[in-house]
Design a protein around this nucleic acid. Structure first.
Length: 346
DNA sequence: AAAACGGGGGT
DNA sequence: ACCCCAGTTTT
């Protein structure tokens, strides 16, 4: 109880003004929660504004084409969020008549909505006593209570959820949930938290045992693997290029890219030219090959590092159907491709 | 239980 | 180089 009171008091004095705090409309809260998964407020904010503006209601989102939803999501990453968002909007409209689920159990049925998001929406919009456990909550609780259980273990997930569910203010679950996350985000930060002015100073085990930098405990993930990407940037005399849709599961599913050749090592101009005939799109094609970037562009994802070269293929005719270079910005592309398109003078 | 899934920002 | 972010889904 004292924990909850201290926390919500802190929150009333320190909460940021954010657009999704002006509403309890579950559609808007849902949008904000999906956008903010593994995403900082600063990065997600403009996307939230864009989605609310382009799709003011769940019906608008449901009626959109997935390609347009992905285009609006471009640059935010974890694109399954956008695909699931769109699929769930269609589900809410077609199966529920547009009435948003109003409890934890039913919210959990939406694609892309897991324990955290269902708890967030249920508590914020419907005052259900469902404790959220996100990265902030793990950090705050592990420090205050001096808990060593790795937060990314199944045991940790159980322990922290259970503790949060005990602590939550049963009368004001919405306030409590948002308060503990805000506290973790702006005060009990990962690095250099403001312990000197912290209202939990006296009771915080990590602070009093000088263990702030050790908590929370997390199991290390595997190191990122290196990959070597070669994109073929076709340019025909009539101003067309080739884009292909990434249909398969994996990164960037349903986004567009230039035809890709993945190699086991970084290619030189000479080695690439020698292999060119083995690539079906280049076989029996007359073309001039220009290497756009001599040094690999390194694009770092959490689980792989992409060493990338863009190969410009000047040709009089394309080997397959192409698209006008003027329309290239209409397609949803990974930011790696988007950056190239912006810097390349088509 | 572990890996996959993006991109930006901080230290 | 390593960590973190209003996590979820697939393997």
């Amino acid at each position: 109880m004292i924990f909850s009171k201290t926390l919500t008091h802190w929150y009333s004095n320190n909460k940021r003004n954010l657009p999704w705090r002006e509403t309890k409309n579950p559609y808007y809260i849902w949008l904000s929660e999906i956008i903010l998964q593994q995403t900082q407020v600063k990065q997600g904010l403009p996307y939230y504004e864009a989605f609310v503006s382009n799709y003011p209601t769940v019906f608008d989102l449901a009626n959109a084409d997935e390609s347009d939803v992905l285009k609006l999501w471009q640059g935010l990453g974890y694109y399954s969020r956008a695909r699931n968002l769109h699929a769930s909007a269609k589900y809410v409209v077609s199966a529920l008549g547009g009435k948003f689920p109003d409890n934890y159990k039913d919210l959990l049925k939406l694609k892309g909505v897991g324990d955290y998001t269902a708890s967030a929406i249920a508590s914020i919009c419907f005052n259900e006593v469902a404790a959220v456990v996100d990265g902030n909550v793990y950090r705050v609780l592990s420090r205050y209570f001096g808990m060593d259980t790795p937060i990314n273990s199944s045991q940790g997930a159980k322990e922290f959820k259970s503790l949060a569910q005990e602590l939550i203010d049963k009368k004001e679950p919405a306030e409590f949930n948002q308060a503990i996350m805000e506290f973790g985000a702006t005060q009990c930060k990962p690095k250099n938290p403001y312990c000197n002015i912290c209202p939990f100073k006296d009771g915080c085990i990590a602070f009093n045992k000088n263990r702030i930098s050790e908590l929370p405990v997390k199991i290390k993930s595997a190191k990122a693997k290196k990959k070597y990407f070669n994109f073929l940037v076709f340019i025909s005399e009539d101003g067309k290029t080739i884009l292909e849709k990434r249909e398969r599961k994996g990164i960037w599913q349903n986004l567009y890219q230039f035809p890709l050749i993945e190699t086991s090592k970084s290619m030189t101009y000479k080695s690439f030219k020698e292999e060119a005939d083995n690539y079906s799109l280049l076989k029996d094609l007359n073309f001039e090959l220009v290497l756009y970037n001599k040094e690999d562009i390194v694009h770092k994802l959490s689980h792989q590092h992409l060493y990338t070269k863009f190969w410009v293929i000047n040709t009089n005719r394309l080997p397959i159907e192409g698209v006008s270079v003027e329309k290239i910005r209409d397609f949803a592309v990974p930011i790696l491709i988007g950056n190239f398109i912006e810097s390349f003078n088509f």
